[in-house]
Design a protein around this nucleic acid. Structure first.
Length: 731
DNA sequence: GGTCCAACATTTTTT
DNA sequence: ATGTTGGACC
């Protein structure tokens, strides 16, 4: 009883309603910073205190990080353990493994990430005799993914309703599924789709799960796709004890099939649903909230809500203009230093950007000033060549049919088994119907192979068999053994590839860590966990450093001070998404998510010029932040033209040389230079009239940055561009 | 069969 | 600007 009092002690009325709501469907509309996680964790603890068995509770989150945090917070409420708190994908992987026979799967299926999918698709295209020029793997995979996310299996596609290209992709889709099946592999989308299918078609399975999970909570419901929607529905079909929480304004995954309609239509799906609105914000200052509200209210597809905060006033939100991305990065450094003067710690600070590639310029500036930072980009490590190779060996031990893994490592390190040999091996499998492992073990039967190739293949097969015999060892021991016996260790050693060696060591550490933390460690489970790691999982709130991440990765986090860089048209909204109004609204929500991460201080910035794919582009501030009354806008007060690394000529006297001198001595750098100074009005033969913003030397070549009347801004080398100085009086 | 170089795509976001 | 892929050459 005492415990129950504590559980409800400092909750607001709507929070308490959500926590104590007993049976049936409920929708919790939770604005940013409204204590949503708190409600979920307290609800789990509350249900248990009411006699619900922990094992009957299932909470589904979107990221492993969120699941982990939720688990810790439930534990902190001294609730007994045993409830299931995981992501959709890990739930699916777990259940499909547990009920593999019902699902028509082998227990030890591989999970294919994007790279694996791509490699699989390339093979499929070859089998279908289609070329990757007309059917770019990436594009095809996106297409297939969209179908899968909509819960559309290949059989469901009607050729008559598809255009030519879609019909071809549908064929590839079918072949790709067949290929994955023969590889005993599922991709990310398959995990969800297969679970959704099983729930739909296998009543016994569904009933069993319905009684196992009696209370279901789905977080971030606004980001669910059709499969996830069907899973949630199917899991609660018999009891309808389904609580979903989310915020339509934070739906940012439409591009990967999430349907904001799922949350908007929850009340229609469950007419008896109880609805709770959490509108009180405990995170941000009124300044931050006002700005976020002014921006998001331009959206049409939303549920209007009245956000309010109890927090006291803070500094105004600012929008700062910079010349280019480099200066924006320097501006970031000064922003960080200023925050520190305001007695904030590094770990209190976060910098968000729209695309990963923008982190480069920021990183350089941070390194130069020795500011500690972490980039929230978790999968990067697991995509490194050496890590993927080692993992492919491990995968092959668990799932010998995994052709993608086999192709990856059969000649890594090089053992004289080239592409031709591999293709001949698989051709032989195809024509005889034999399993690849059998053929590898007995290459003599492959008539097309030369004897050298045969003996090499045989040797490789023996290596794999030898490694398979080590399966009794602990996970970390297996990792170590495979690393050494595969020849990778010697290979990197001889190559003096220190990075690779260090990274492999780190993988060994991760395996050891897994071993210690997992209640029931196994290699298969370890591989599954790794396969489902995401970027956002990398955020370490204990690290004492500035946090850099994409706007997407920022969801669910909060920081005392937030800087969002690159708030420009073309980035937010991104240029690839400014067709449909739905896309624009999602981009606006993405900015909204970023804004509402800030607790105290919120700064936005944009650059007038940005280097993209090797060329410089002129930029304008994002349409989302134009004419926003509560946003204080200013150009960076710092005059950059005086502290560039390159030489600066802006202080040279421009009066002792005339236009005639420039024209008569076009080859004389100094003289011609003197006629052109910063602020000088000029005419370019084709670009028209403009003003020089900055002069500098690049490897002894004088360079001018010119702002033209047309709005165009260009960097011009005086050597090539004939700039004619104009008298201001002609202006 | 392996290695090296050139052309090509690629960068929007991610489980 | 960078990483990947495919082709030419060894």
């Amino acid at each position: 009883m005492q415990q129950q009092m504590d559980l409800l002690a400092d909750l607001t009325t709507p929070q308490r309603e959500a926590v104590t709501f007993q049976d049936g469907p409920m929708l919790v509309l939770a604005g940013p910073g409204s204590g949503k996680t708190r409600v979920i964790t307290h609800r789990i603890a509350y249900l248990i205190s009411q006699g619900v068995k922990p094992g009957n509770i299932l909470a589904i989150t979107f990221t492993n990080k969120a699941a982990q945090e939720m688990r810790q917070r439930v534990q902190a409420l001294s609730a007994p353990p045993g409830s299931t708190i995981c992501t959709f994908h890990s739930l699916a992987a777990r259940l499909l493994r547990e009920f593999a026979d019902r699902a028509g799967l082998a227990r030890d299926f591989s999970i294919y990430d994007e790279a694996d999918q791509k490699s699989a698709l390339r093979q499929v295209l070859k089998l279908c005799e289609m070329d990757s020029q007309n059917y770019p793997p990436r594009r095809v995979l996106t297409h297939i993914s969209k179908w899968k996310n909509k819960f559309i299996t290949p059989e469901l596609l009607n050729p008559d309703e598809l255009d030519f290209f879609d019909n071809r992709v549908a064929l590839i889709y079918k072949a790709y599924q067949g290929y994955l099946h023969s590889n005993v592999a599922l991709d990310f989308d398959d995990l969800l789709m297969r679970l959704a299918l099983l729930l739909r078609d296998d009543q016994e399975f569904r009933d069993q799960l319905n009684s196992r999970y009696r209370y279901i909570l789905v977080d971030e419901y606004q980001d669910t796709n059709s499969c996830q929607y069907q899973i949630a529905r199917g899991l609660a079909l018999n009891h309808s004890n389904l609580v979903v929480t989310g915020d339509p304004d934070q739906s940012i995954y439409g591009w990967r099939g999430a349907d904001i309609g799922n949350i908007l239509a929850f009340e229609e799906d469950y007419p008896q649903a109880y609805i709770v609105r959490l509108e009180e914000n405990f995170r941000s200052t009124p300044e931050v909230l006002t700005l976020a509200d002014q921006i998001i209210k331009a959206n049409y597809r939303r549920k209007d809500k009245q956000l309010f905060t109890v927090k006291s006033s803070g500094p105004p939100c600012e929008l700062v203009e910079y010349y280019d991305e480099k200066e924006e990065a320097q501006g970031m450094v000064r922003w960080i230093q200023q925050c520190r003067h305001e007695s904030l710690q590094y770990r209190d600070l976060a910098v968000f950007y729209r695309v990963n590639s923008m982190s480069r310029a920021l990183e350089e500036a941070l390194r130069r000033d020795r500011i500690p930072y972490q980039i929230v980009r978790g999968i990067e490590f697991f995509q490194r060549r050496e890590i993927k190779d080692l993992l492919a060996y491990l995968r092959l031990l668990i799932n010998p049919s995994d052709q993608v893994a086999l192709r990856r490592i059969i000649n890594q390190p090089t053992r004289g088994i080239g592409n031709t040999t591999v293709n001949r091996l698989f051709d032989h499998c195809q024509s005889t119907g034999l399993d690849i492992q059998l053929v590898l073990a007995d290459p003599e039967q492959v008539a097309t192979l030369k004897s050298t190739a045969k003996s090499r293949v045989k040797k490789f097969s023996e290596l794999i068999r030898h490694l398979q015999e080590q399966a009794d060892n602990s996970v970390s021991q297996i990792v170590q053994l495979v690393y050494e016996k595969s020849g990778l260790a010697r290979f990197y050693d001889e190559e003096k590839n220190e990075d690779a060696v260090n990274n492999v060591n780190e993988l060994c550490n991760s395996a050891a860590l897994y071993e210690n933390e997992s209640p029931d460690p196994s290699l298969a489970d370890y591989l599954q966990q790794i396969a489902l790691i995401s970027d956002t999982d990398a955020y370490d709130d204990q690290a004492g450093c500035v946090n850099l991440m994409t706007l997407h990765a920022a969801k669910g986090l909060e920081f005392p001070a937030v800087l969002i860089v690159g708030v420009e048209d073309g980035l937010i909204p991104h240029s690839r998404r400014d067709e449909g109004e739905n896309d624009i609204e999602e981009e606006r929500r993405l900015l909204f998510v970023g804004l509402t991460r800030a607790q105290e201080k919120l700064t936005l910035s944009y650059a007038r010029n940005r280097m993209q794919q090797g060329s410089k582009k002129a930029c304008i501030p994002s349409r989302f932040v134009r004419n926003i009354p509560s946003l204080v806008c200013h150009t960076s007060e710092y005059d950059y033209s005086f502290d560039d690394d390159s030489n600066d000529f802006s202080n040279l006297d421009s009066d002792d040389s005339s236009a005639q001198d420039w024209e008569s001595n076009p080859d004389d750098d100094i003289l011609s230079f003197n006629s052109l100074a910063r602020g000088q009005l000029i005419r370019h033969p084709s670009l028209g009239v403009g003003r020089i913003q900055k002069l500098s030397l690049v490897r002894d070549n004088p360079k001018a940055e010119v702002q033209f009347r047309s709005g165009l801004r260009r960097t011009l080398y005086l050597k090539y561009a004939h700039l004619e100085p104009l008298d201001p009086r002609d202006d």
